[in-house]
Structure formats: C-alpha cells, structure tokens
Design a protein around this nucleic acid. Structure first.
Length: 295
DNA sequence: GGTAGACCTGGACGC
DNA sequence: GCGTCCAGGTCTACC
C-alpha cells in the first residue's frame, strides 16, 4: 500500500527527521543510504505494521507491505500527518527569523517542525526517559521498553511497536526497575500507563490546538516525572513555543554563545530568548549555535 | 515560593 | 579494579 501526503510549504523531510533525537529511538529507524524513515506501529485494529516513509519537496509517501483496510489507511494517514506536522504553518516565525542572522537558514531549510510519535503517550514516556541521564541510557531504556512490552511484526519479532498503555499497565514497578532498567523513573512510567489505560487520563485531547499554553503546561506538570524541562519539551512537540526546555545542554550552548563558557543558570537562558515571546522555543531550537562552528 | 538532598543507571575519568 | 562524578531533571520535605 502507498499513501501520498502533501505538506504545507515550505517542507523539508530531512529537517523534520533530524529535528531532534527521536529518530534514534525505536520504533523509529532511519536508513541514511535510502533516506527512508521506518516506524513500527500498533494500529487500533490490533495489527502491527511497519511504515516506510520517504520524503519529497512537497510532502511524504508512506509505504507498507501489508494491505490495509480503508479505516486503517485513514489511521495511518492521520498519524503520519501528525508525526511530521504536515499541516503546520511557520510563516510568522519565518518573518521574524529573516531579521536574525542566526536564524537566516530557518525558512530556506524549512525548519520548525519536530518529529513526533503517533501518540502523546509515547512522547511523554520518551521525554521522561531523557531526564537526568545520558542519551545512550535513554536509547537503552526505550529499547528495553519496546522489546519487553511492545508487540512484534508478524514476520520479524526483532521489530516491535511501542508498548500500549494497556500492555504496560499490567506490569510491576519491580520488573520495570530490575529488567527494563528504568531506575527511579519506573513508578512514573507505570502510573502514567495505568492512568491512560484506565481512561483517567486522556493525553490525546492535549493535541488540540486551541488549548492555551499555560493550561496545557499545567496539565503536563501534573504528570509525575514531568518537570519544567520535560513540560517545555512536550509543549514544543505540541506546537507551543512559549517555554524553553532548559537542560544541562542548553546551559552549555547558551553559555558558549553569550557568556564565554562561564557557568550560567536557567535565568540567563531565558533572558537570551525573552524577546522571541511565543516563538522563543523555535528560536532556541533552530538557532545557529556558534558552539557547533568548525575551527 | 524557594531550596537542599535523594534518586536509578552506567559511562568516563582518575588513581 | 575501584571510587567518584555526572548526565538533554524531578520530587519531596522543609523553611
């Protein structure tokens, strides 16, 4: 099966794929040689399928080896549109970015979209797994979760979908600690899965564009394990850019940019991007950091 | 509301 | 080989 999906221009497939580290976390995988992003998904029909997503200047094509029903095709299309933010409009950000040399490439490179998981449940868990740890450990914890609790492709049990809330809800904190190696994050992940599986918490409604940012942030901060950094990161994913995900990395690159490498705190990071208002997250995310300049 | 201390893990580093 | 530090922070108790 093949679906062709159009994006609001400008659009850049590699810009979305490489917008942050999600592409390195299963069930995502990216093949550089063929420039193909794959993702193993658990459809609401119960089937486990793999998407092969290829970019074009006008959007993406999605291929699956499985033959899908009409409703399954609609589900895949809706999910990929969300994952790539195909309908998102960054024209107001680009208008401001044209005035800032450090964002001069933003419009040309069609920056703004960030790669998202099909469900906010998956993005919340992955975000919690990025906190207070090394990136390598985030990849390992995510891989453990997927291998231990995700359902496999019919023809390749080494490729699995992200666990459903229901599959995680029935496990124990002890197993998440001892086998999945989530450490102190185990009770957070378990509580989240149980809340979503029971229907007490509906994360998908938070994708609605008309929820005010402060209300959204308040709801995200109620999730155990989600603090200021994680909430800001999730707001970025949800298309709200009023808060900065200030982590140790942000402190490092902002210090290098404006403070000569001296130790700084979150206040200095906030001050550096204050003038960008509701688009400060975008300005921060796509800033042409001197930290990465060669030489 | 602000802050200190604890928290899982595992790689890097110094000895 | 061993101990310590720290990383894409958060929570809780305490003031």
């Amino acid at each position: 099966m093949k679906l062709t999906l159009s994006a609001r221009p400008p659009f850049s497939f590699p810009s979305v794929v490489k917008s942050h580290g999600w592409v390195q976390l299963v069930p995502f995988a990216f093949d550089e040689a063929s420039a193909t992003l794959t993702y193993v998904d658990h459809l609401s029909s119960g089937r486990i399928i793999e998407y092969r997503i290829i970019g074009s200047p006008t959007g993406v094509t999605v291929q699956t080896s499985a033959k899908l029903t009409r409703s399954e095709q609609d589900e895949v299309a809706a999910k990929v549109i969300w994952m790539f933010g195909l309908e998102m409009d960054f024209s107001e950000f680009y208008a401001l970015a044209r005035q800032e040399p450090k964002l001069a490439k933003a419009e040309k490179n069609a920056q703004g979209r960030v790669l998202r998981s099909p469900t906010l449940f998956e993005d919340v868990i992955k975000t919690i797994l990025t906190t207070n740890t090394l990136w390598g450990a985030t990849k390992r914890m995510t891989a453990n979760l997927v291998m231990q609790f995700g359902d496999p492709l019919a023809d390749d049990s080494s490729r699995r979908a992200f666990p459903t809330p229901e599959s995680l809800a029935v496990t124990t904190e002890e197993r998440l600690r001892a086998e999945t190696r989530l450490g102190y994050r185990a009770p957070y992940i378990l509580a989240l899965a149980r809340a979503v599986a029971s229907g007490d918490l509906d994360l998908e409604v938070l994708k609605a564009a008309d929820i005010p940012t402060l209300e959204l942030r308040k709801r995200l901060l109620k999730i155990k394990g989600v603090g200021n950094y994680a909430a800001a990161n999730l707001l970025m994913i949800l298309g709200h850019y009023d808060f900065l995900p200030v982590d140790s990395w942000a402190l490092k690159i902002v210090s290098h940019e404006w403070y000569g490498g001296e130790p700084i705190g979150p206040a200095e990071v906030e001050a550096a991007f204050e003038k960008w208002g509701q688009r400060k997250g975008l300005a921060y995310w796509f800033w042409d950091w001197s930290y990465f300049e060669k030489g």
